[in-house]
Amino acid sequence: MADPPRRNIDATTLRGLAHPLRVQLYDALVTYGPATATMLAGRFGESTGSTSYHLRQLAKHGFVEEDPFRGAGRERYWRAYPGGAQLDGYELTDGGSGEAARLVVGELHRTQSARLEHWLAAGYLHVPREWGRASVDTTAHLRLRAGELAELGAELTAVLDAWRERVRDRDADPEAGTRIVEVQLHTFPVAAEDVP
């Protein structure tokens, strides 16, 4: 069964995410999978009360939900909304929405960059050689039109979506030979002053 469609983040739902800890909680659930407020509190050095409050706010705005397959009684597991979310910064330029969008995108990029920096600094030393050799660090510079850039982005996203569907029911389990693998893909036009 495929994930539901991605949710578009509008000015109202953006307010539910525009807090550094909420972005970190959401990112952790997307990256590492379901967790309890207590588990997340330990990860981020916060109180369980704080993480519980922020998880409820994320749920209120549709970013996370209770995981119906985990937890019992008072042990409540949370998971990121299965379809994911997307934000169009150009739609959120009025009032405080633009600043909130910059906060969210900036915080997400900081967490992604931190994971990449950790890998580049020494992460490869902590995995078997086959995992290190299977990783990719590549850059390409293409001369594209705006429509071609959009087409490239759609094709790359389709590849990632196909792989996401292919492995959707797997848990990260080193004993079974699986790990969480992060794919960071950046496509953007280079600033005009950088173009020869």
Rank of each mutant, 00 (worst) to 15 (best):
G16H: 05
L17R: 03
G33I: 02
T31L: 13
R43W: 13
V23P: 00
L14Y: 03
A18R: 01
Q24D: 15
L25H: 08
A41E: 10
A41K: 10
G16R: 05
Y53F: 12
L17Y: 00
T48I: 05
P34L: 11
M39G: 15
L17G: 03
V23G: 00
D27Y: 04
H54I: 02
S52F: 07
Q24R: 15
L40C: 13
Y53N: 04
R56A: 15
T48R: 15
A11V: 08
L40K: 10
P34N: 06
L25I: 13
T36K: 09
A11E: 04
R43F: 14
L29W: 00
A18L: 01
G49C: 09
G62E: 02
G49D: 03
L29P: 00
D27L: 10
A28L: 13
D10F: 11
G42T: 11
F44K: 11
L17M: 09
L14W: 05
L40I: 07
T38L: 14
G49P: 00
F44W: 15
P34T: 12
G45M: 15
T12D: 05
T12F: 05
R22E: 01
R43P: 14
V30F: 03
K60G: 07
Q24K: 15
V30W: 06
V23I: 08
G49L: 01
T31A: 13
A41V: 05
K60W: 08
H61P: 02
A41R: 08
S47R: 14
M39S: 15
L14S: 06
G45D: 09
Q57Y: 01
L21S: 05
E46P: 05
L40E: 12
L29E: 00
A37K: 07
H19S: 10
L14Q: 05
R15H: 08
L17C: 06
R43A: 15
L17T: 01
G49W: 01
Q57E: 12
A37G: 15
H19V: 05
L25T: 10
S50V: 06
T12E: 00
A28M: 11
G49S: 12
K60F: 09
F44T: 14
L21V: 07
T31G: 05
H54T: 00
